[in-house]
């Protein structure tokens, strides 16, 4: 474990007095706490940060790369112990479905609002002054046309496994857009950076908290307001016979999910997990360390922990 031994030792050292003061940690099972990681940076860094805190408490931790939707099934069955970022818009449905089946529960709530939806950088407004209204966007769809979309506008969506229902939204609102999925988050930023060079209008999937806000100022498109059931009940929303005829929740939650067996198996770690809470800027900072500064996620987590002791040390008390 060369790669992590240095930071781990550092954290362990910092935590040594606490470990002494709270022998309750010793009750934690010796089995490793399995933390799933996905394909966006803030989640990976946060997972490592929390993992390193656990390791500092004497627990062993393992990271497994899993699909961000399938993970709830895995947690439910105890294959993974927790999920540090449950975004309402993206994973609310999977999380709720898994909760219904049993085995998983909400262990905490970050002090952050999330929003993920169609988004554009500010220079786009020049080509389409009516923004952020979605009907105005639709009216200037041709400004967003690319070779692969023909005369329709291109909406650059996230990777397919994020299951964003953008195509359904286009269909429900009868928009002049075609959804083109990027292969990865990085591909989104690459396209955005390319568009920035000659200030091409672009509308793409984005979310907050995210480092991108700091690099490229922009705004979310304002769709018909989200109402509960818009994604399942055709009656909800402006079109009585369509689902997804609305935007995503503008102030979605960002929760922490845990396996039902976790409080019993690792009571010490679980107690800490319940107190974990990050804010939008903190999460954006974590993502930035990787996406902009080019650090390895493990190192980014170590660096973040070292720089923000005031934030996380109280959680151990």
């Amino acid at each position: 474990m060369t790669r992590t031994s240095r930071p781990v030792r550092a954290v362990a050292f910092a935590l040594a007095p606490f470990a002494f003061a709270f022998p309750a940690f010793a009750q934690d099972s010796g089995d490793p706490i399995v933390i799933p990681i996905h394909n966006w940076s803030s989640q990976i860094v946060m997972s490592h940060a929390i993992g390193q805190i656990f390791e500092g408490m004497g627990n062993s931790v393992e990271y497994v790369s899993t699909d961000s939707q399938a993970v709830y099934e895995a947690i439910r069955l105890g294959d993974a112990a927790l999920e540090v970022e449950v975004w309402e818009g993206a994973f609310g449905a999977s999380f709720d479905a898994a909760k219904e089946k049993g085995g998983i529960h909400e262990a905490g709530n970050h002090n952050a609002v999330t929003r993920e939806d169609w988004w554009y950088p500010l220079w786009t407004k020049e080509a389409c002054p009516g923004l952020p209204d979605w009907e105005a966007l639709n009216a200037c769809a041709s400004a967003f046309a690319t070779p692969e979309t023909g005369d329709k506008g291109r909406f650059l969506g996230g990777p397919v496994d994020w299951l964003k229902h953008d195509a359904e939204k286009v269909e429900a609102l009868d928009m002049n857009f075609t959804v083109v999925n990027a292969g990865s988050a990085a591909a989104l930023w690459a396209e955005l950076a390319a568009a920035e060079r000659d200030k091409t209008p672009i509308v793409l999937f984005n979310w907050t908290p995210n480092f991108a806000e700091a690099v490229w100022p922009g705004e979310f498109v304002e769709f018909p307001k989200w109402e509960a059931g818009c994604d399942s009940d055709p009656a909800v929303g402006p079109h009585p016979d369509k689902v997804y005829d609305c935007g995503n929740p503008a102030d979605g939650y960002l929760k922490i999910a845990a396996w039902d067996g976790m409080p019993e198996k690792w009571p010490g770690a679980y107690a800490v997990l319940q107190k974990v809470s990050f804010t939008n800027p903190q999460i954006a900072e974590m993502a930035k360390l990787v996406d902009v500064d080019g650090m390895e996620p493990e190192d980014a987590a170590t660096a973040w922990l070292a720089a923000n002791e005031a934030t996380w040390k109280p959680w151990l008390e």
Partner: peptide
């Protein structure tokens, strides 16, 4: 197999390629 959690080189490659590194 790293799509379903196999660790190692594959997972790393997938992450790095997705990050366009």
């Amino acid at each position: 197999a790293s799509f379903i959690g196999m660790p190692g080189l594959g997972q790393k490659l997938l992450q790095l390629l997705q990050a366009l590194k």
